[in-house]
């Protein structure tokens, strides 16, 4: 399936959000996630299935004013 990962087209067969994060090397990383504009808590990633054309955001701490 093809999803939009952080605004870029991305091909994956990860069954859920947790699996996608792990495959990207984020299993232990300081990240937060959203799917289709809504926040998905870390504890809910495993029960969040991915479907074609999902828009996924994976964010991390960054400098800010």
């Amino acid at each position: 399936m093809k999803v939009l990962l952080n605004g870029e087209p991305f091909a994956t067969d990860a069954k859920n959000l947790d699996e996608l994060c792990a495959r990207l090397g984020f299993a232990e990383a300081k990240i937060a996630t959203a799917v289709n504009g809504s926040f998905v808590a870390a504890a809910s990633r495993e029960t969040t299935p991915l479907t074609d054309a999902d828009e996924i955001e994976i964010v991390a701490p960054r400098q800010g004013g």
């Binding site: 300081k30 991390a60 800010g64």
Partner: peptide, 19 residues
């Protein structure tokens, strides 16, 4: 101090160092 959050690249992993 104020901070923000931004898209994290699997390659650069910029946010991990900043944290």
């Amino acid at each position: 101090v104020t901070v923000s959050l931004r898209r994290e690249s699997a390659r650069a992993r910029t946010g991990q160092g900043f944290w």
